[in-house]
Simulated assay, not measured.
Amino acid sequence: MLTYYTLDQGCLVPTDKPDGCPHVAWVDLHSPTEAEEREVEECLGLDIPTKAEMRDIEASSRLYVDKGALVLTVDLVSNATGPDPRVEPVTFLLRPDGQGGGCLVTLRYCELRSFALFVQGCNREPLESGDPWTVFLGILETVIERLAETLEKVGEDLDDLTRRIFRRGNRRQLATASAPRADLSVVLERIGQHHDVVSKVRTSLLGLGRMAAYVAQRREAHLKLPPEALARLEAFRVDLGSLSEHDNVLSAKVDFMLDATLGLINVEQNGIIKIFSVVSVIFMPPTLVASIYGMNFDWMPELNWPYGYPFALALMLGAAVLPYLYFKWRRWL
């Protein structure tokens, strides 16, 4: 899908192909067809990277200058709060004209909520200008805010899981409490999902940090990086550093909770095995008594004794109760 955005009183307005492409503030290519790519290339005189080129991991293939345009490719998290988060490459092509104008082209093959939020935000707080740097930095700011919100949601859910996993009290109290102890298998699954999201956010933060550093270093005259844009870019680099530290903290917390949950699962499994072992030990003496009186010998005094049967039952009951009381005294049960 190809969408042209023009600036109308500081707001980005989607429009059909205008008569003059230089008057376009932003061109968004979302899973474009070959015809749409050729249209943009002919209109702006740019070489649109292919999908395979966008996936190259070499820095020289992701951050470079081509025909006076700055080409920046970064991996961003798509559907971060959904059931299937992914990391997909997104390319920004900036071509300033040196007179406060120019155009920004974005190329992506995934749905990014940040782009729609940026357009909505422009309607509430109009842009000061429609030059490519303002639009690019506005999108970048929205992307960073979305990553921060994602990490915040992960942190809140981890706090909730921590309270549920390490809730104090005995099992009966936990079972009747308003917030019962979580099923550890479900908790383990949620921790795995959070680990996936945190690792993908870290990938995006690292890519954005490299991209911001590259743009800050490219101060050639033909790029026309305004001083205010450079100041915003430096502020973004500080934000990215803070988010990276926060991501590392959450990653360590996820690892701790994963180890703790696996440990609790082992504790519960050991408790079950302990119960079976105790039950087996309790029934071993009665089984021994029953085996003795089940032997076929001609002379056994208790066989002709009127109280032999009740005596055998009482002996088996006592043989079972005494080990049970001993285990309770030792607090093994």
Rank of each mutant, 00 (worst) to 15 (best):
Leu7Thr: 08
Cys11Gln: 15
Pro14Lys: 05
Thr15Met: 12
Asp16His: 14
Pro22Thr: 10
His23Gln: 15
Val27Gln: 02
His30Met: 07
His30Asn: 12
Ser31Tyr: 11
Thr33Ser: 15
Thr33Met: 06
Thr33His: 10
Glu37Ser: 03
Arg38Leu: 14
Glu42His: 11
Gly45Glu: 11
Pro49Arg: 04
Met54His: 06
Arg55Leu: 08
Ser61Leu: 11
Leu63Asn: 04
Lys67Pro: 00
Val71Met: 11
Asp75Tyr: 05
Ala80His: 10
Asp84Leu: 14
Pro85Val: 03
Arg86Cys: 04
Glu88Thr: 13
Thr91His: 13
Gly98Cys: 08
Gln99Ala: 15
Gln99Cys: 09
Gly100Ile: 09
Gly100Lys: 09
Arg108Cys: 10
Tyr109Ala: 03
Tyr109Glu: 09
Glu111Leu: 09
Ala116Ser: 13
Leu127Gly: 05
Pro132Val: 05
Val135Thr: 12
Ile139Gln: 03
Leu140Pro: 01
Val143Phe: 02
Glu145Leu: 07
Glu145Met: 07
Glu149Phe: 07
Thr150Phe: 04
Val154Ala: 12
Val154Asn: 09
Asp157Gln: 14
Asp160Lys: 12
Leu161Pro: 00
Phe166Tyr: 14
Arg167Lys: 12
Asn170Trp: 14
Leu174Pro: 00
Ala179Met: 02
Glu189Ala: 13
Arg202Asp: 07
Arg202His: 11
Leu208Pro: 04
Leu208Arg: 02
Ala213Lys: 12
Arg218Ile: 06
His222Phe: 03
Ala231Ser: 11
Arg232Trp: 02
Glu245Ser: 14
His246Asn: 08
Val254Ile: 14
Phe256Asn: 05
Ala260Ile: 01
Ile273Ala: 14
Ile273Cys: 00
Ile275Tyr: 01
Ser277Arg: 09
Val281Met: 12
Phe283Ser: 09
Pro285Val: 04
Pro286Tyr: 06
Val289Ser: 02
Trp299Cys: 00
Trp299Pro: 00
Met300Tyr: 09
Pro301Tyr: 13
Glu302Tyr: 05
Gly308Asn: 04
Phe311Met: 12
Ala320Asp: 02
Val321Ala: 15
Tyr324Trp: 12
Phe327His: 07
Arg330Gln: 14
Arg330Pro: 03
